[in-house]
Structures are given as structure tokens and as C-alpha cells.
Nucleic acid binder design. Structure first.
Length: 1116
RNA sequence: AGGCUUGUAGCUCAGCUGGUUAGAUCACUACACUGAUAAUGUAGGGGCCGGCGGUUCGAGUCCGCCCAAGCCUACCA
């Protein structure tokens, strides 16, 4: 034993324990802080944390998202970048409000009645941070490095102040305006609903409505003349609706410009009057000609929707109301065009009521059509709708005597010869989740950001963003941008960022506040002019902010617009508000030091959420992208591919998973299993007790595989190294053995290692972590552990520290060290554990943690493709021989004399000769013999090289392939001269040697096996000498096992006494074998004795049982 | 309804610009190997590569249509 520090050895690997130890080390030594401070002055890598909401518990999917964020930040740190990561919490939003309402047992309309806004918001503020401790805990345990000590919190005044500043920017650019939009509205509750609320489970329900095909009478003028056969013709356009109550408010009919329409002459089934009607050609059959349907008396040639444009018609249900202007337009009762029109159902003509449909309103706007809003906010007709005045359009009051207004309108239309068809229709319709009543779509005033004005610029800048996967950016996000609508910011709620706009009651004056200082000035001004005594509210939320009255230039009081803003604005403003920009940290944004982000990551469901709001704000206000690279990850599903939900009990608790397998295992499993953007079926089984009330066991086969195959193997490789390096006192203080002086196998694994560094670096750099993880895993498990270490074992424990042994240590050391660096972004714990154990002894790195080291640089000179190919050959050949041994039922421990390898040329032979020793050692054979075809015992086979021949021959391929398959050995000899002429259908085709593939398949009279172009034959004769040697090796194996089970030290020398037996007598009396055995098992003596005590161990060699006593030798 | 993604062995995934008999892991069975191993080797079973059509000498791969699952968006009248 030497005096050098020892590599640490841990008997049984327990990953969660390593986690704890490394976490403690990180904390004590502030490794995270150092990973930033040691990069001071280097180029920065900017990362934004998408804030999670802490009012729910963290799930395993959060671990996934954060692993992705963490690993690329760690990688960039290794590459020398300075990566600061500010944490943050999302604290506003509907889920928090709903949670509070649920726990208090109240409803929205109770706010301000049963509970004050003040108290309500207090509850929200608490709820927002409800699980903050658990979140901090999961963040630490999973090894996610993000600054949790100074997070941004969206409810703080400073954050809100930044939001106000941004809003003021929009306002002063004329991009923030108040306007109407059609929104889901609940007349029963008297409130608008967010799409979130409408999409709650159970809101869409099957209901039966009265539908009407209404007939709109066409006015005969120059536009429409082509439709009329004569002046008297009664010509009508058909339009279908499921909401007849919107018919009095009709102001237009929308047709598809490319849809074909026809005119049908028929008879109205209700009035029996002759009438001509216009509808889409493909929908004629739906309404006409069949039994119980109106007849088709005559059908016109088709005309397109475009031709119908601007034809005017008589108002269907005129009650003398003035057309309300829409963007100033008051035109009405005209056919307009709309791309949204389909021929799926209805008549291919959409009855358009711009006040009650978003599409309607959009189409009407572009066509310059006005609107009619004949229903009020209580859901009843206003007083000027004739017989329908004052009637509720749906039963909003639970009135037992309620009569459907839809039915009455249908009846009226039938009587007036204005309906062609009236029937019941079942369809899905959204309902208010609070009142269970059908919602209606209604124009409500809201504050908007004019995002549509920046549609082109947003698309343009999006093309400079690197999306992972690319299709999300090019497809989903790009499409979204191209159809972007103005952003509705208004929310009529209580807990959120208040809109900083004050208005006079007549809306003649307004002010948008952009800072606390400005608010203070305005408060002072109002106090002075209005004689008030207001002070700055300590909290910018409602209700305090609502109580502030400001004053207009004209001296009129102004009140705040009561709206809150969309929480998505909170998160879209992260780049600026997290730094309290522009009130602090101005240079971060203005000098582009902390903006835009180099990298962000979030779930793909955020495409229209965070990804969009970040983009929109930065493009509109800063004419910049907000992020240069973005990874959008898919969902985590349970084992069966079902979305995880608490209700189904199929959620995986991240704490349980990490406690059981360690954070590295969870992280590695998630990254290596599938690309982040593909949905991941999370391997996790739960076994329940009989009553199904308690989980008795939960486990993950997938994670066990990761642990056993990768992390465990990596650790074992290290532990193998440590065992012998400690014995030999290897501490890397000796000079580096030059590459040229290292044996073939060392140069091989180093070649692979350097190739690996290059590939992994490239994958990380392009945000492709999954292939990087798979390559690292393959290297460790298949190449390093299973081939390099297995073949080199002896080099570590045999002999003195010569060049060969030193080379082995240095090579394995480097492999372990570099692998740890490469894998550390994904598996930060075990890699730091191993790296530090290595480095503590060798002191090769100044860095005290793998995470503070520099990413390894590949040495191109060490990469040798020919060598890598040769080693593949050795592995293949060894496999083939092992398979042959198995077939002949000869154990590997039994030495055999020789293998035969047919070679086609000298080059191939040279290649084999370089790896000869490795193969022989691996398969326990004494010699290798090469046979060339001149010996006449090698059988060859021939195949076409399809890539080359396919292009040349085309249709003649099949014939040539068949001919080649029938080739004799003689034919192959012929083509080996250079070429061969085929006669196919009387045509001569010349195939060159270059265009076929020749392999040696068989050797006459031998057991042969071949694969991947390699063929080997095995001599299976066991001579008495070989048999004896076989027994010697069996004996060695048993003695080694005894050493192990007796817990001897690896270096202990022993004395061996064997029970006398014929089987072994010859072996131990053979001087060479005797010495061989002793040197292998470190025996000072090996003797056969007639009798052994009862307590002796027994061993079994070739079914012979004999006693053995092994004792530690006192002679040292 | 539209956009996007996915569909290969019982499971989880590879399969590069079309090329010969479609691979790996896990799980199962048997036998080996082990002086690091929760490792590994050999052998075995297991596949209408979601379906149909097309292009081609040749399709898991390219094209079209369809089916299924998922996500996002949508008042489809």
C-alpha cells in the first residue's frame, strides 16, 4: 500500500445516498454560485425560467421539464459560458382563484358580499405560495440549479410596476385600445367567461335546439339580374341556423368564394307557394328531392360564391331598428364572402349576425357591414323587436311557463313564407359552469393589444428562432402567428395585475400609468385639484388601487378601469419584469446582456401560451425575438399511455421516484428514453393491497434498467479501477504514456472516447440530449465495461507497474473522467461523485467539482477509424467463436488449439493479425491460422452490390440477381479476374468485380460460423494436453471463488491443500501447470493430500467432487 | 373541424440521403463467463414495420388517401 490518497470505494452503491452526500457538498461549498462566479467575464448564456405556479404540487412532469432546462445550462457552463438562472413563481391566475373559492366554499358573486375583495385577495396571496417549501425541496433534490434565493414573484409591486411600464409602452404606441369583441357570456350570471372556464369538463353538453332554414328574398338589380329568369320570380337564398333568436339581428349572408352554388325551383312545403332558392350545389340532396322533401322542379347551372358577392336582400324580420355601426360601417343585408364557410352541413350559406358570432363579426368587418344587437345582457330581446320584445332567448330564469322564442320565430317565418324547413337538431353547446345555463356569445368591451398589426414581423422573427422540434416552430407556431388576432387583455376578476388605466365617466379623458413615481405624481395632482387626501397604496392589487381617484386635465375625476390583465401577460413579461426593468438593471435589456434568451424550454402546450406571449411582447416593443433556442417538450403519460391525473391515481410522485432510484436515474431515464418532444410513457407500476386502498409496492422497470445498465455499470467500472489503483498507488503522477506506446486496445478505447466527445458535444450544442445520452450509455456499457475492462482485467492486477500497466491505468482513468464530464449535465450527482473521487487523488483538475470543470476537447489525432473497425472485427469474430463453442458444447474455460479464418486478401489478413491476440485470449484458443482461397478449401458466396448495380441495370436487376445466386465457385473465380458477361434476353450485360460483394462462407470439413462478412472455423479437438490445461483452469476458477467467498484480500497469498484425486494428479504434478495455477491464485504452495478434515470446502470439477483447504500464507 | 406530433417484437426505442434475411434493450427459457459488476456472452421463441393505393428493378424509408392516439386552436351557421 502506498501513502498516496486513496480512491474512495463504496461497497454497495445506493444512489439516493450519493444524492444526499453530493447535495451537502454543493451546499457547503456553494458550487452552484461558483459555477457562475468562476465564469465571470466570459460570454454569457441567457436562460429564462418559465415560472411554475406553486399552488399545485410538483409532479414528475415538472422533473422532466426542469431536467431539460438544467442540463443545457450545465452544459453551457462546462463550455465556459456564464449562465445565470433566476428562479420565479407564477402567482396570479384563475386556478388560484378557483382553489380559494373552493376552500372557502364561496362563488364569484359572493366576492364583495360574503367576503371583501381585500380578504379574498389575502387568501389568494397565501394560496399562491401554498406549496413553496415542497417546490423548493423538489428543486433541490432533483439537482435543478436555479436561483431560488432571489426569485421573481409575479404578485410583487416591483413586478407589477414593470408590467405597467410595458403596458404604458403599448399604450403610447397606440397599441392598447378598448374595443368590443365577441366573448362567451353567461346572461344568468351576468358575466363574461374565459375560454378556460368554457373548456372545463362538463361545460359542453348535448342539447336539442330548434333549427330553421330561412329564406332571404333577393332584390332584383344589376348585381343579381343573372339569377332571375323573369321579373316576377320569387328568388330566395337559403341559410340554416341553430340559433333562430339571432335571426332578427341578421345583417348579412356569408358565402364561400370558391363554393359552387345553384338555383333550384321548388315549392315551399309550408305555404305551397312556388319559389326559387339558392344554396350550395353539394347540399341540394340534403334538402330536396327525397321522400317528404320539397321537389327539384328545375336546377340551374352552377355559379360561384364570388358571383353572389354584394347581392342585396330584404331584411328577414324587420322591426325598424337602426343598423349599429361596426368600424363605422352601417351597410347591411348584403351577401359577403368568408373563408370559414363550409358545405359540411346547412346550406353553404351562413346567416350572419355580427353581434353574436366571432366569425360573423370578422366577416362583417372586412365587408363593411354594420350590426344589430337586439338582445340585451340579461339575455332577453330589447323593447323594439315587435312581438318578441322582452322575451328571454333561453330559459335563464327557470321559469316553468317559459316558451321557446326559437319556436315562435320559426312559426312566424313559416307563416310568412320565409322558412323552408324547421326541425329539431342535437348538437354540442357550451354551458356556464356556474349556472348550468347555455351561454351566448355577446359583444363585450375589453382592452386589447393590437397584435395583428405585428403579424408579419412576428412571423419574420420567428423564422430566426431555432425550435426543437423544428416542426413546432414552422408548423404549429407559425400558423398561429399568421392568423394572429388582437390580444384580449381584460379579465373581470379580483386577483391579478390591475390595468393601470384611469378614465373619466364619459370616457373623454384617460391616462395610462407606467410607474409608481408617475402614480404618485398623479395622486398628488388629484389630491390638490379635487381636495382629496389619498396616499400611495402599499399593495397595487385590488381593492386598494381601485380606491385611487385621479384627475383629468379638465379637472374631471377619473376612476380606474376595473379590469385585470390576462395572467399570460405576467409570464410574457418575464424577461423584463424579473429584473424590475427599466427601473433597475436597465443595461441587461438595453445592452442585450440578459436579453434575448439563448434558451428556454417548456411544454408544447405552451405554444400559444408562454412561447407566444414572450414573442409578442418582445417583437412589438423591442423588435427582437425573446429567445433564440426553444425546446418544447411533450407530455408525460402513464405506463398505458393515459394522461396522468390525480383522479385516476396514476400519478408518479417525484419524491418517491427519487427516494427509490436517485435523481440521476430519474433524469437519465427521462432524457435517454425518448426525445423530449415525443410523449413519454413513464414506466411505473403500482401494486395495491387487496382493498385497493393502499399502495404496497411501486417500481419502475425502465428506471431499474437505467440504474443497472448505465449508472451501476459506470460506478462498477470506477470501483474496479479504484480497487487496483489503490493497491498499486496509482495517482496519475507519472508522465503520460505517449499514445504510440500504448497497446492497441488502449488506443482503441481512447479513439472511441474522443469520437464520443465530438459527437456528444455536437448533440448538446444543438439541444439534442437524447442521442447524446444514448451514445454515452453505449460507450460505458458496451465498450468500456464489457469489452475494454473485461479484456484488460489482467493488466490491472498482474505484474509490476510497467509501461503496459501504467498505460492501462491512465487509459481507464481518462475514460472515467471524461465520461463523467460528458454525462454530468444529465446525471449531475453520480458523475460528480466519481469525478471528485478521481480528482481528489490525482489533482489533475483545479476544479473542485465536475460542474466547474471545462468540457473535454476531442483530440483528433487519437481518433483512428481503421482501429475502431478492426476492433469491431475482433468483437464479431469472438462472438462467432463463442457461438461455435456453444454449439460443440465446449466451455470457454477449456482451451482449444486453433481457429481458421479465411481471408480474401493480404490486407484483410494484416487487419486480423493486429487483433489476433485479443481474439485468442477472449475465446481461449491457442492459435489462429489464415487460409487463402488458393488452398481450395474456402467456399465463397457472391451477392450483387445493389446500390451500384441498381442504377446501372434498372429493370434487368432481377435477372442478374438470380444469375448471381446460381454462381458456382468457378464463376466466382471468373468474375474475380475483373468482370463477368451475362446474357439476359439476348443482351450482353457486363458486371464488374467492383459491383458485387464476395465473402468467404464456408471451409470444407470444419465447423463454421459467419456474420457481417467475417467467417471463422474452430478446431474442436481436445488433446490430453488441452484437457489437462482445461482442468487446471477449472481449478483456478474454483480457487478464485473460494478466495472471494472467504473474503481474502485481493493481495493475500495462500496455501492450498487438495484432496488426492486422479483427475487432478496429472495436473498439479505437471510443473508448468503447477506454476501456472500458483501464479494465478497467488499460492505459495499447492499440494495433494490423502485426507482432509471434515470442515474442508468441497469443489466440483467436471462432476468430480473433492475437498480443498485454503489458508492465508503467513509468508509475505 | 383545422394545425402539429406519433404509430416498427409483450414493453421501451433505433433504423442515416430508398438497397439484400428489419435491429437493440427489458421481460421469458436454457447454457456459459466473472479476481469489478445491480454487469456480460451464446442460443431460442416473439414482427402483415397502423391500413389501402401509388412511384420504383427494389419501400419500414418517398407520395396520396384512410384509421388510431395525443396536444393545441375553434361559437363552425
Amino acid at each position: 500500500m502506498s501513502d498516496t490518497p486513496q480512491y474512495r470505494e463504496v461497497k454497495h452503491l445506493h444512489l439516493p445516498e450519493i444524492d444526499r452526500e453530493i447535495l451537502a457538498f454543493w451546499n457547503e461549498n456553494q458550487i452552484f454560485d461558483k459555477s457562475i462566479s468562476t465564469r465571470e467575464g466570459n460570454p454569457t448564456f441567457v436562460f429564462f425560467e418559465g415560472p411554475p405556479s406553486t399552488n399545485g404540487l410538483p409532479g414528475i412532469h415538472h422533473v422532466m421539464g426542469r431536467t431539460i432546462k438544467d442540463l443545457f445550462c450545465r452544459y453551457q457552463t462546462l463550455k465556459g459560458k456564464q449562465v445565470s438562472r433566476k428562479g420565479g413563481w407564477d402567482t396570479h391566475g384563475l386556478p388560484i382563484e378557483l382553489n380559494v373559492e373552493k376552500s372557502l366554499g364561496i362563488r364569484k358573486d359572493d366576492i364583495g358580499v360574503k367576503i371583501s375583495v381585500e380578504d379574498y385577495n389575502k387568501h389568494c396571496r397565501q394560496d399562491a405560495m401554498r406549496y413553496i417549501d415542497i417546490w423548493n425541496d423538489v428543486t433541490e433534490k432533483m439537482g435543478y440549479w436555479v436561483d431560488m434565493d432571489n426569485p421573481y414573484i409575479t404578485y410583487e409591486n416591483e413586478y407589477i410596476e414593470s408590467l405597467w411600464w410595458l403596458l404604458q409602452q403599448f399604450y403610447s404606441k397606440g397599441l392598447l385600445y378598448k374595443g368590443y369583441s365577441i366573448q362567451p357570456y353567461s346572461p344568468a350570471a351576468g358575466t363574461g367567461l374565459s375560454s378556460h372556464e368554457v373548456n372545463q369538463p362538463g361545460c359542453y353538453r348535448e342539447i336539442t335546439d330548434t333549427t330553421v332554414v330561412a329564406m332571404f328574398k333577393v332584390i332584383n338589380n344589376t348585381k343579381s339580374a343573372f339569377l332571375f329568369d323573369d321579373e316576377q320570380e320569387d328568388l330566395r337564398i337559403l341559410a340554416w341556423t341553430t340559433t333562430p333568436w339571432t335571426l332578427p339581428s341578421n345583417t348579412a349572408l356569408t358565402v364561400g368564394p370558391k363554393i359552387n352554388y345553384v338555383k333550384i325551383k321548388t315549392t315551399n312545403p309550408y305555404t305551397h307557394q312556388k319559389v326559387s332558392v339558392v344554396l350550395a350545389e353539394s347540399l341540394v340532396e340534403k334538402w330536396f328531392g327525397a321522400k317528404n322533401q320539397p321537389s327539384i322542379d328545375e336546377q340551374s347551372p352552377t355559379f360561384t360564391g364570388k358571383q353572389l358577392q354584394n347581392i342585396t336582400y330584404e331584411q328577414l324580420l324587420p322591426f325598424g331598428n337602426d343598423i349599429e355601426p361596426l368600424d363605422g360601417a352601417t351597410d347591411a343585408f348584403r351577401v359577403i364572402l368568408g373563408d370559414f364557410v363550409t358545405t359540411e352541413d346547412g346550406t353553404g350559406v351562413v346567416h350572419t349576425a355580427p353581434s353574436f358570432g366571432a366569425d360573423d363579426r370578422k366577416a362583417a368587418r372586412t365587408a363593411g357591414i354594420g350590426t344589430l344587437t337586439l338582445v340585451d345582457k340579461q339575455g332577453k330581446f330589447i323593447d323594439t323587436v315587435g312581438e318578441f320584445s322582452g322575451r328571454y332567448v333561453k330559459d335563464y330564469l327557470d321559469d316553468p311557463s317559459y316558451v321557446s322564442v326559437d319556436v315562435d320565430i320559426a312559426v312566424r317565418l313559416k307563416l310568412d313564407n320565409k322558412a323552408l324547413n324547421v326541425q329539431k337538431y342535437e348538437h354540442n353547446y357550451p354551458h356556464c359552469w356556474r349556472t348550468d345555463k347555455p351561454i351566448l356569445y355577446y359583444p363585450l368591451d375589453s382592452w386589447f393589444i393590437a397584435a395583428s398589426k405585428y403579424r408579419d414581423r412576428m412571423s419574420e422573427l420567428n423564422q430566426t428562432i431555432n425550435w426543437k422540434p423544428a416542426t413546432t416552430g414552422e408548423g404549429r407556431f407559425q400558423n398561429w402567428l399568421e392568423n394572429i388576432q388582437d390580444w384580449n387583455l381584460s379579465r373581470s376578476r379580483y386577483w391579478g395585475c390591475p390595468l393601470p388605466i384611469w378614465r373619466t365617466t364619459d370616457s373623454s379623458s384617460e391616462i395610462c400609468i407606467g410607474s409608481l413615481a408617475q402614480l404618485q405624481t398623479e395622486i398628488d395632482k388629484a389630491n390638490r385639484i379635487l381636495g382629496l387626501n389619498q396616499t400611495m397604496p402599499p399593495d397595487l392589487h385590488r381593492p386598494y388601487i381601485d380606491n385611487i381617484t385621479l384627475v383629468s386635465d379638465e379637472g374631471e375625476p377619473m376612476q380606474r378601469e376595473l379590469d385585470l390583465i390576462d395572467v399570460w401577460f405576467d409570464s410574457g413579461a418575464v424577461p423584463y419584469a424579473q429584473w424590475h426593468y427599466p427601473f433597475e438593471n436597465k443595461e441587461l435589456i438595453d445592452d442585450k446582456k440578459g436579453f434575448p434568451a439563448d434558451f428556454i424550454a417548456e411544454g408544447v402546450d405552451q405554444t400559444r401560451g408562454w412561447f407566444y406571449t414572450l414573442h409578442a411582447i418582445s417583437v412589438m416593443l423591442f423588435d427582437s425575438v425573446a429567445y433564440k433556442n426553444v425546446v418544447s417538450n411533450g407530455l408525460l403519460l402513464d405506463e398505458k399511455g393515459v394522461k396522468m391525473s390525480k383522479r385516476l391515481g396514476n400519478v408518479v410522485d417525484p419524491f418517491v421516484a427519487m427516494d427509490k432510484y436517485g435523481a440521476d436515474t430519474v433524469r437519465w431515464y427521462i432524457i435517454s428514453n425518448s426525445n423530449p418532444w415525443d410523449n413519454l410513457k413513464f414506466s411505473w407500476k403500482k401494486e395495491w393491497n387487496e382493498d385497493k386502498t393502499e399502495v404496497i409496492r411501486e417500481y419502475s422497470l425502465g428506471m431499474e434498467e437505467v440504474r443497472n445498465k448505465f449508472l451501476g455499470t459506470l460506478y462498477n467500472t470506477y470501483s474496479f479501477f479504484a480497487l487496483y489503483a489503490n493497491i498499486d498507488g496509482f495517482n496519475y503522477s507519472q508522465p503520460e504514456v505517449p499514445l504510440a506506446n500504448r497497446p492497441e486496445i488502449d488506443r482503441w478505447i481512447l479513439s472511441l472516447l474522443n469520437s464520443l466527445v465530438k459527437k456528444v458535444d455536437a448533440y448538446y450544442a444543438t439541444y439534442d440530449a437524447t442521442p447524446a445520452a444514448r451514445l454515452i450509455q453505449e460507450f460505458v456499457s458496451d465498450h468500456l465495461s464489457n469489452w475494454y475492462v473485461r479484456l484488460c482485467r489482467r493488466r490491472f492486477w498482474k505484474g509490476d507497474m510497467g509501461v503496459d500497466k501504467l498505460s492501462a491505468y491512465q487509459t481507464l482513468y481518462r475514460c472515467l473522467e471524461v465520461v463523467c464530464q460528458l454525462a454530468s449535465p444529465i446525471a449531475p450527482f453520480i458523475t460528480d461523485f466519481i469525478f471528485r473521487n478521481l480528482n481528489n487523488t490525482s489533482q489533475l483538475h483545479a476544479a473542485e467539482s465536475v460542474h466547474l470543470s471545462q468540457f473535454p476537447v476531442a483530440n483528433d489525432l487519437a481518433i483512428d477509424a481503421a482501429l475502431e473497425e478492426r476492433m469491431m472485427l475482433a468483437q464479431t469474430a469472438s462472438s462467432l467463436v463463442l457461438a461455435l463453442r456453444k454449439k460443440a458444447d465446449i466451455k470457454v474455460r477449456q482451451p482449444l488449439q486453433k481457429i481458421l479464418v479465411p481471408v480474401l486478401n493480404e490486407q484483410q489478413q494484416t487487419q486480423f493479425e493486429q487483433i489476433e491476440k485479443l481474439i485468442l485470449a477472449e475465446v481461449n484458443v491457442k492459435e489462429i491460422q489464415f487460409v487463402s482461397d488458393t488452398s481450395g478449401i474456402v467456399t465463397k458466396s457472391i451477392k450483387p452490390d445493389l446500390k451500384k448495380l441498381g442504377k446501372k441495370l434498372g429493370g434487368k436487376m432481377k435477372a442478374v440477381t438470380t444469375a448471381l445466386a446460381a454462381f458456382s465457385q468457378e464463376d466466382i473465380k471468373t468474375i474475380e479476374q475483373g468482370s463477368y458477361n451475362f446474357n439476359i434476353d439476348g443482351e450482353t450485360i457486363t458486371v464488374l468485380l467492383d459491383e458485387v460483394l464476395i465473402t468467404s462462407e464456408d471451409i470444407k470439413g470444419w465447423m463454421v460460423n459467419s456474420d457481417k462478412g467475417v467467417t471463422v472455423a474452430l478446431d474442436v479437438n481436445i488433446t490430453p494436453e488441452l484437457a489437462q490445461e482445461g482442468i487446471a483452469r477449472e481449478l483456478i476458477n474454483r480457487l478464485q471463488n473460494l478466495r472471494k467467498t472467504s473474503n481474502f484480500n485481493v493481495t493475500d497469498r495462500i496455501n492450498v491443500q487438495l484432496e488426492q484425486n486422479e483427475l487432478i494428479a496429472n495436473v498439479i504434478e505437471n510443473t508448468a501447470l503447477h506454476q501456472y495455477i500458483c501464479s494465478e491464485v497467488l499460492a505459495d504452495s499447492l499440494t495433494a493430500v490423502p485426507h482432509l478434515p471434515q470442515t474442508a470446502n468441497t469443489i466440483d470439477i467436471n462432476e468430480v467432487v473433492l475437498g480443498v483447504v485454503v489458508t492465508v500464507s503467513s509468508a509475505k
